[in-house]
Amino acid sequence: MNLYKIAKTVVSFIVYPLYRIRVIGKKNVPKTGPVIICSNHISNLDPPVVGITSPRDIYFMAKGELFEKPFLGKLLTGIHAFPVKRGMGDRNALRKGLKILENGNTLGLFPEGSRSKTGELGEPLAGAGFFALRSNAAIVPCAIIGPYKPGKKLTVIYGEPMNMEAYRAAKKSAKETAEAIMTEIKILMDHYHSQHASLDK
């Protein structure tokens, strides 16, 4: 068993019961081929939660400074993380992300770039749109509905893949495409919010 699978098993054992995680729409994540999972970002725990609820192994970007510590750097690499400098202008990270997709793997992105302290969706960076337009990946919107409180229910919803052909044909910019992805995430959040609230009573 590799490090990724070990970490996924351990984290699942702890986090699933702690936050009473419910997953909806897992079947919407294609079983094969390149995939980009785009989620809202409300906690530092979002990457591991998406990682354990997704049926596919996911590659995530992580702050470059974290890789400067030898042990931590090796650990992050072992669980499929790769470094990115602040912002989405890091060409090495962009190339790495595209290569991951070219190899038929799954890339996990948080279009907002940073956590939302209020739980409301923020403005997306252009990065998610860049990867969506420059690859042939299926774009799967994902919504995490919290809060992250022990004993409270956490819902993770995977929406149906978005078709990017229309965006390419219309020559949409990376920013416009990222905004469209965020709109799909918001639709998921709005649709399941009341259902989630009723389950947690």
Results as ranks from 00 to 15, higher is better:
Lys85Asp: 03
Ser116Phe: 04
Leu133Gly: 13
Lys8Ile: 12
Ala180Gln: 04
Tyr4Asp: 14
Thr177Tyr: 07
Pro55Cys: 15
Cys38Asp: 10
Leu121Trp: 06
Ile21Asp: 11
His41Arg: 02
Ile37Tyr: 02
Ala166Asp: 14
Met182Lys: 06
Lys69Arg: 09
Pro47Phe: 02
Ala180Gly: 08
His80Val: 03
Asn40His: 14
Ser12Ala: 11
Val50Gln: 10
Tyr158His: 11
Phe13Gly: 11
Met1Gln: 14
Ala166Ser: 15
Gly113Val: 05
Pro141Glu: 12
Asn136Met: 04
Ile100Thr: 11
Tyr19Ala: 05
Lys26Trp: 09
Lys63Arg: 14
Thr118Ser: 10
Val84Glu: 01
Lys172Asp: 04
Asn28Ala: 04
Ser43Lys: 06
Met189Ser: 06
Arg20Tyr: 03
Leu125Ile: 00
Ala137Ser: 06
Lys27Cys: 03
Asn105Asp: 02
Ala170Asn: 15
Tyr19Cys: 02
Ile52Leu: 14
Arg91Cys: 00
Leu76Ala: 09
Ala170Arg: 11
Asp46Ala: 12
Lys175Ser: 05
Lys26His: 06
Ser135Arg: 01
Gly151Ser: 06
Glu165Ile: 01
Ile58Thr: 13
Gly146Asp: 01
Ile42Cys: 00
His191Tyr: 13
Arg115Cys: 13
Ile144Met: 06
Val15Gln: 03
Thr183Gly: 08
Glu165Pro: 00
Ala178Ser: 10
Thr106Cys: 09
Glu184Ser: 11
Ala137His: 10
Asn44Met: 04
His196Asp: 11
Asp190Gly: 13
Ile139Trp: 05
Ile157Arg: 06
Asp57Thr: 08
Thr118Lys: 04
Ala132Ile: 02
Pro70Tyr: 02
Ile21Ala: 00
His196Glu: 02
Pro17Thr: 11
Pro141Asp: 06
Thr106Arg: 01
Pro111Met: 06
Val15Cys: 05
Asn92Thr: 07
Ser135Asp: 03
Gly108Ser: 14
Leu109Tyr: 05
Pro150Val: 06
Asn136His: 07
Tyr19Lys: 08
